[in-house]
Nucleic acid binder design. Structure first.
Lengths: 200, 200, 200, 200
DNA sequence: CATGAATGAGTGTTCATTCAT
DNA sequence: GATGAATGAACACTCATTCAT
C-alpha cells in the first residue's frame, strides 16, 4: 500500500534542514559545521538528513539555489513602469532587509571563498551571475533614462553595487554595526556611486 | 657549550610556513586547509610545523598579528605634515597594493567569520580594532581640518572605509575583477564617502 | 517511525570492546595499548569504538565503574546471618577467583598509577573507596563479634586486606606464581592479619 | 687536543637524568613520561639526553639495573654472624626506607607491567630474580637454623615476602597510607608469614 | 519515511630519535 | 660534550556517509 509521497511534508522537511544548516554554517562556517550538528539543531537523525540531501555539499548548493531563485523572483516582480534607478535602490533595501536575520550575514561571509568543491563553486558563480546580469540590465536601463552616470559601463557599476552590499554584509556579520541604522548610508553610497563625483 | 641559536634562520622558517599557509588558506579556507598540505607546500615535515607553531590556530593568529603590526607600522610611518585626508587615501592605496597578491584577497574573505576558536576571534578583533582606531584618529583630524564631512562621526566613517576595502577584497578574490584597474574607482568612492552628497 | 533501539545489542558491543580493552591493557599498559589495537582485537572499526566511548579515558573509567559495581553487588548479596569474618574471607576468595583470568591481574597492576588523567584518578579513587568502606564496615562488625583483633582500627585492617590482595594480584601478573595454588596461603595470611600475633 | 673524558662528570650527568626520570615516571608512568619532560626536569637539552642513553628504554633499563645492583650490595654487605631471620627483616626495613622517597613507590607500581619492550622485561626479570634468589638463600638458611617455618619451601616464602613488600609499595604510592607509620605492621606481617599460623 | 549503529579515510597533534653546528 | 631544529611514524579522535532494521 504505497502511501503517495506527500510533497508538502517533504518540502517542509527540507526547509527545516536548510534552516538548521543556516544556523550552523553562520556559527562555524561550512567546513566547521558538522552534519551531526545540523541534525541536532533540526531535531532529526543523521539518516533522515541524507534521505533529503545526498551530500553535505548538495545541501549548501540547495541553499544557494534557493537564494538565486529569490533574486530572480525579486527582479521578475518589478511593477511595470517603476523607474530603473528606483528598482536598483529597491534591491539594495531588499538585500539589507535579508541581513536583519543575523545568520544571513554570517552565511554570506562564510560561504564566499569555497573555490574547492566544484559543485559549490558553480552554484556560487550562478548566484553571482544571476544577480550581476539582473543588475547590469536595470543599470543599463537607468543609464538610458539618464538616471545614472554613463562614464562607466553598466556591468562595472553592477559589480560595484554588489561590492557595497557584500562589504555591508561582512560588517553586519561582525559586531558593532547595526544593519538597520546603517542602511540609509548604504543607500546614500550607492546613490553616490550611480551619480559619480560632482562635475565641479 | 650551546651553539648560539640562530634567530634569523628561525624567523625565516616561520615566514616560510606562513607563506605556505597563506596559499593554502586562500585556496581552501581555514578549516579546509590541512596542516599536511601546508607542510607539503612549505616543503617541511609535520613535526617541523608544530615545532614552530604549537597549533594550527596559533599559526593563523601569528599571521593576523603580523598584519596588525603592519597596519600599525603604516600609520606610524606617516611623514609629519602630510594632510590627514591624504593619509586616509594613502592607506586605501596601500591596502589595494597588498591585494595585488591574489592570496591576500582570498585570505581576508576566508578568515572573516571565524567566531568559534576564541584565540582567532580575539586576534581578528585586535586587527580590526587597531585599524579602526588608527583610521578614526586620522579621520577626526581631517574633519578638524575641514577636509572631510562632519555630519557623521569619525568612527562611523572609519568603519565605512573598512567596509569598502573589505568589499573590494571580496571582489578581488573572485574572478572578473582586476584590482589594479578598479583601484581608482575605490579611491573615488572613498572620496565620495568622505565628502558626502553634494549640498545641492 | 524510529526503530526501537536495541539496548541489548548496544550493551553487547560495549562488553565486546571492554573485553578487548582488558586484553590490550593487560598486555601493554594503559598508555601503551592503542585504540587501534583494541579495535583490531574487538574486530570493529575505529569509528565504532568512539561511537560507544567518547574517549579512551572514558573506556577505562567504564571498566573501573563496572568493577566498583561488582564490588558493591558482592557485599550487597551477603546472606543474612553469615558471620562477618566469613564474609571477609569470602571476599578474598572472590577476588582471587577473578584473578584466574590472567588479564585481570595484569589490568590491576597496570592501571594503578594513573594519577594524571583526572577522570581515571577519580574512578580509581571511587573503586578504592567503595571496597575500603565495605571492608571497614564488615571488619568492624567482626571486631564487635570478637572474631577479629581489636588492637588495630577497622579501617587500617581493611587497607591491609587490600594490600595483600593487590600484592597477590601483582604476583599473579608476573610468571611463576599460580594463583589457584597460592590462594590458600593468601587466606591464611589474611587470617594471620585478622588475628594478629599470638598473645604469647 | 682531545680532553680526556671525565668519568666522574659523566656519571653525575647520568644520575641527574636518572633522577629526573624517576620523578617523571612516578608522575605519569613510563609511556606517559616524555623524554622532553625528563630533559626539562633535568635541565638539559634533548641532544644531551640521547648522548647518555641511546633510547628511552635504555634509561629505564639502567634505572632497573641500578636497583638490582643495590639489592646485590645489600645482601653482600651482611655482617658475618648476623642471624638469617634478622637479615630478612633487615631487608624489609631497608625496602621500606627506600619508599620514604614517594617517587620510589610510584616508580615500582608504574613499571611493573611492562611486558612488551623485551629489554625492559628482561631487566625487570633480572631484578626480580636477583632479589628472589637472595631471599631464598637466606630464608633457607633461617629454616636450617630453626628460625622459620619449614612447612613451605624457601622459594615460596621468598616470593611471599616480595608480595608483601610490593603490596606495601602500592599502598604507599596512593594517598592515605603513611609508609613510616605502617612499617611496623609490615614487619609484623612478615614475621607472621615466617612463623606460620600457631600450632594450636 | 526515519533511524542511529557502523564505517574508515582523514585530521591535528605528539614524541622518540637524528644530526648539523 | 652539548644543543635544539628537524623528522615522520604513530596516535587519539572526527565526520561524512552507508545501510540494516
Amino acid at each position: 500500500m504505497p502511501r503517495p509521497i506527500d510533497p508538502v511534508r517533504r518540502r517542509a522537511r527540507r526547509l527545516q534542514i536548510i534552516d538548521a544548516a543556516l544556523t550552523a554554517f553562520a556559527l562555524h562556517g561550512y567546513a566547521g559545521a558538522t552534519t551531526a550538528e545540523i541534525c541536532r539543531i533540526a531535531g532529526i537523525g543523521s539518516g533522515t538528513f541524507f534521505h533529503h540531501f545526498p551530500t553535505k555539499d548538495s545541501l549548501l548548493v540547495a541553499i544557494l539555489e534557493e537564494g538565486t531563485e529569490e533574486t530572480r523572483r525579486f527582479f521578475a516582480a518589478r511593477e511595470p513602469g517603476t523607474p530603473a534607478r528606483q528598482v536598483i535602490l529597491g534591491y539594495v533595501g531588499h538585500a539589507v532587509a535579508d541581513l536583519a536575520d543575523p545568520r544571513a550575514a554570517g552565511f554570506i561571509t562564510v560561504v564566499g571563498g569555497l573555490t574547492s568543491h566544484p559543485d559549490i563553486a558553480a552554484a556560487l558563480r550562478a548566484d553571482e551571475d544571476t544577480l550581476r546580469a539582473a543588475l547590469r540590465e536595470v543599470v543599463a536601463e537607468a543609464q538610458h533614462a539618464g538616471e545614472v552616470r554613463t562614464d562607466l559601463p553598466a556591468d562595472r557599476l553592477a559589480v560595484w553595487i554588489m561590492l557595497l552590499i557584500d562589504g555591508f554584509a561582512g560588517r553586519t556579520a561582525g559586531g558593532g554595526f547595526e544593519a538597520a541604522a546603517e542602511a540609509p548610508l548604504l543607500v546614500e553610497q550607492v546613490g553616490l556611486l550611480l551619480d559619480g563625483p560632482p562635475a565641479d
